[in-house]
Amino acid sequence: MRRPKRSRAAEAFGPSFWVFAGFAGIAAWAVWELKGIGAVGEALSGDLDVLLFLLPRMIGGMLLAGLVQAILPPDLVAKWVGEDSGLRGIFIGAVVGMLTPGGPMTSFPIVVAFYMSGADRGALVAYLTGWSLLGFHRTLVWELPLLGSEFTLYRIAAVIALPILAGLIARRIPLRAVGPGREEDGPTAGSRRAGGEA
């Protein structure tokens, strides 16, 4: 989350920008070769339509994502999943996962923290599944603008119950391995290093 002002332009026009630009260039060339200049123009005007459609959604979505991040204090989040178990723990895990912004650099350190503080494994699985399937941040910033609101609503409806299902299954699996700090196989030094990055 630290983002010094100077590097913003560097981040915006970083490697992924150029990779996409490269893909766009190669694909444009291929379209021209295969289908002629008319198809290139067709694709461009389609892109313009998409962009005009997106802008009001994208700006609103990102503003919303930023505000939710500012409103939700992280300590409160840790308390919710850390202490509880039972169906409520799974449910809370799933919801908190959905509310966790950012990529794996944010979510995995949180999971490690939950794990260390004794969270139930069903809640942990529900958390990770909720975050990866329904993370509001990703949905607002990427899915809604690119794939449209109807597709997004269909997908949300199709997967909304799955984090809880995964949590319930995780609890039934007879694998004794998951106990905070007891197993060699638990969170490792690497996770503590990466934890500082969140």
Binding site: A170, E183, G190
Partner: peptide, 10 residues
């Protein structure tokens, strides 16, 4: 970060 066993469980 979470180990192989937790990953397998998930």
């Amino acid at each position: 970060m979470m180990g192989g066993r937790f990953t397998a469980l998930r």
